[in-house]
Computed example of a mutant assay.
Amino acid sequence: MERDTRDDPDGRGTRDLPDAEAAPDGADHLIRLRDRGFEDRPVELVPTERIVVDFDDFSPRSDGEDEDYVRTLAETEAEFPPILVHRATMTVVDGAHRLRAACLRGADHITARFFEGDLATARLLAVATNVTHGRPLSTDDRIAAARRILAAHPSWADRAVAALAGLSAKAVARLRDGTGLEAGAFRIGRDGRSRPVDASQRRELAGELIRSDPGASLRQIAARAGLAPATVADVRARIRRGESPVPDRGRGRAAARAREPVPPGQRRVPPASTGQPLADDEVLRLFDALRRDPSLRFSDAGRSVLRVLDACAVIARDGGRIAATVPPHCRESLAQLAHGYAGIWNRLAHDLTGGESERIASLGA
């Protein structure tokens, strides 16, 4: 079946029809399948006895079913969203706990949408959906998910694997080093493009081109250096700051800053556990998943957390408008306060992951 381009004449964001699910073209294919939520698929009422739960092959959850979480879901009065099932094997891709909770309620049918793709894609899609939906994955489970993706697609770029597994690209790189997989000279990014693993020489060339022709556009330099325009933009920004075009050469200065003394009564802000900041749409998608989680919605503590997150979601949606309406004499103070709150959130992220970076580093060693 062909791609449906009726809503996208230029073909940039084409929506795959069912037959296209059987031919994934990279990590971005899985991410698009995961993030669109299969809302365009019809909802069917399926007998629970026909559905298979396979925690070994389809789920990254090493501890299997969480009985406490199942009971929490079953005791709520909320109607469960449809689960996602692999049509060919009738195996749950996303929603195993919802299925168990429905059975605990005594239901003999459950609403479901179907994934029509092949078995290998269904398994990876199960990993991708479990990272962002339902009960959050532990650090160990996300590590296991990344290893599973690397084993299936060793040529996928670290950032592509990280987006699926819920880790940072640096964490995935350390895991890759510890797997013994063939590194290869090129990696395939989320956009499907193949890029060299070591881009330092290309960055150096881009730096020389920027210095010799400051008026050249990002795309012109990118084409000549064999880099993405976004990478060239990073090189240009580094040169303007007086830094090397190659990020690795700036680590010494970062380490020196990390050794600077912290003022009395203050705490050093640790690096964010997920490495790269999320885009605004990713933030809103994660918040939407959390606010639908019954374990948060139906407890006092959980509702308090969701209220705080809702305020942050407002900023993610309307940050530009908010900034434009702040009186000029308040801008500097508000900016300082925002930086301060960012540090507090950063510490919370570090505390929530329990030193994830250190554990991943030890596992990849």
Rank of each mutant, 00 (worst) to 15 (best):
M1V: 12
M1Q: 11
D4Y: 09
D10T: 13
G13K: 10
T14L: 11
R15L: 15
D19C: 09
A20D: 09
A20I: 04
A22S: 15
A27I: 00
I31A: 14
R36D: 12
R36F: 06
G37V: 07
D40L: 10
P42C: 02
V43K: 01
V43Q: 02
E49P: 02
D54N: 09
F55M: 12
F58R: 05
R61N: 00
S62W: 00
E65T: 03
E67T: 04
R71F: 01
E77W: 02
P82H: 03
V85K: 00
R87P: 00
R87E: 15
T91V: 07
D94C: 05
R98T: 02
R98F: 02
G106P: 07
A107R: 04
R113L: 06
G117T: 08
A120E: 14
T121L: 06
L124H: 04
N130D: 15
G134Q: 04
R135D: 04
R135Y: 04
P136N: 07
L137R: 00
L137I: 04
S138E: 14
I143W: 04
P154L: 03
A157Y: 02
D158T: 05
A165F: 02
L167N: 02
K170S: 12
K170H: 10
A171G: 09
A173E: 14
A183E: 15
A183K: 12
G184H: 05
G189Q: 04
R190T: 13
R190W: 00
R190L: 15
R190Q: 14
R195I: 03
Q201V: 12
G207R: 05
E208H: 10
E208M: 09
P214H: 07
L218I: 09
R219V: 11
Q220H: 12
A223N: 11
A223L: 11
A225W: 00
L227E: 07
A228P: 02
P229V: 07
T231N: 09
V232N: 03
A237T: 14
R238E: 01
R240F: 01
R240S: 13
R241A: 15
V246I: 15
P247D: 10
D248G: 13
R251P: 01
A255H: 08
G265E: 06
R267S: 11
P270W: 03
P270N: 04
P271D: 06
Q276S: 06
L278Q: 04
D281I: 13
R285N: 09
L286W: 08
F287Q: 08
L290W: 04
L296P: 01
G302D: 08
R303E: 14
L306F: 08
A311D: 15
C312I: 11
G319H: 05
G320I: 10
G320L: 13
A323D: 08
A323W: 07
T325E: 14
T325C: 12
P327T: 10
C330A: 14
S333D: 15
S333G: 15
L334C: 08
H339P: 00
I344S: 11
R347E: 07
D351W: 09
L352H: 07
S357Q: 13
E358R: 15
L363F: 06
L363G: 02
L363R: 11
A365C: 07
A365K: 12
